[in-house]
Nucleic acid binder design. Structure first.
Lengths: 214, 214
DNA sequence: TAGATTGTTAATCGATTAACAATC
DNA sequence: TAGATTGTTAATCGATTAACAATC
């Protein structure tokens, strides 16, 4: 019985289960047990059941989970049955690449605009969009009902952009800039920190060395 | 006194402390207390001290931490005092953008090559590099002593690429493809899952709505 | 019915927080 | 010395794992 709030690690894994289920669906598999999910995701069967139990009872003892119906339920739980509009702030390398990224344009997401403050870029075409002056972002987001903002600008601009996004009614931010941004009330922020990922790999490098110690 | 192995969350934060220290350094600040680090990073002072204590004693009671010397120590601990060679497998949108990303070319990292299996791309220039046939990756990596591989290829190719990287002596992999890859022995793997990040944001969206419930 | 697998409860594990004696 | 701040120990909190009665 779902009680209180689900732990964040469980929410993170929901996304993994969903991907796993969709793959099974594509393979024509109609039923999957928690043990079957473990085999595909590496997440232990007990953990799978515990995680799902935070959101409801989806399985049948002795049988497992119906792939179709669990998929549908997870999509519902994660709010992926409506389309969410996304904008990108920062038309540099990373912003441009993400603008072309399938995942940000398919399924539950649609890319509505990309912004920059560089006059040389504004008006230029990027994929099927035109780069818009960032000063127009709040108005644009309000009118288009944009829910999600992606920040790919330099660190020193990130906080101001986040504030501007909040002003435009954006309620979730994915921040790629290497800086902490203070989330306004009612705005969820997640960070993807590429430098951090690389540095952490370096930390664990010596452990995998044949012998030598640092 | 450092005992046993440091918890992964602490290692993750080490990278944040390092960035904070470098920023302080740039501002000409010579000393920082754990409370000062809290103010800059949002990580509580107690947590800061606990984290650092896994690696040694770096502070002076009553004074705090010397910015210069703690910076130097963290760089050492994280293995960032040597340059690590990086290659990218997959010259699509994301791979191309990352190839131009400063963070993957500066400081402790240098980008040595970018690979693809698409004949139309092989030989083309990307930034200051030429796109190389991925079949040459193991040889290249062995000869150039590449330590880190970044996978920006589609999911169905990811595992094979990871295996090929291991074959080439790579010991750390940053995987951007939306699939689990099984790490070979002695290879550290970290995943950056952009779709997951977006989906998790969606999950938390309703919570920030003015009122209405899903 | 017998076998399989769920949802849940209790036990374990690990990480964070609080508090303080040691010390600059 | 008095004030500040460390490193560490003990207390709390939360998440994972183990185990099993309920049930298809």
């Amino acid at each position: 019985m779902p009680t209180g709030r689900a732990p964040e690690p469980a929410v993170l894994r929901l996304s993994i289960y969903l991907r796993c289920l969709r793959q099974a669906q594509a393979e024509g598999i109609t039923t999957l047990s928690s043990a079957g999910i473990e085999k595909r995701t590496g997440i232990t069967a007990g953990q799978v059941r515990k995680d799902l139990s935070h959101f409801g009872e989806f399985g049948k003892p002795g049988l497992g989970y119906s792939v179709d119906s669990l998929t549908a339920r997870l999509i519902q739980i994660m709010n992926l049955n409506e389309t969410h509009k996304v904008v990108i702030a920062g038309a540099g390398n990373l912003g441009a690449a993400l603008a072309g990224y399938e995942g940000f344009r398919s399924g539950a997401f649609s890319l509505a605009a990309i912004f920059d403050n560089n006059l040389a870029k504004i008006g230029r075409r990027l994929w099927d969009l035109e780069i818009i002056d960032i000063s127009e972002m709040p108005k644009f987001c309000k009118e288009a009902n944009v829910e999600i903002g992606i920040i790919t600008a330099p660190a020193n601009a990130a906080q101001e952009i986040a504030d501007t996004m909040a002003e435009g009614g954006i309620r979730a931010i994915l921040n790629f800039s290497p800086t902490r941004i203070l989330g306004q009330k009612g705005v969820v922020v997640r960070n993807v920190d590429l430098t951090k990922e690389l540095e952490v790999l370096c930390f664990y490098l010596p452990a995998s060395k044949p012998a030598g110690d640092a």
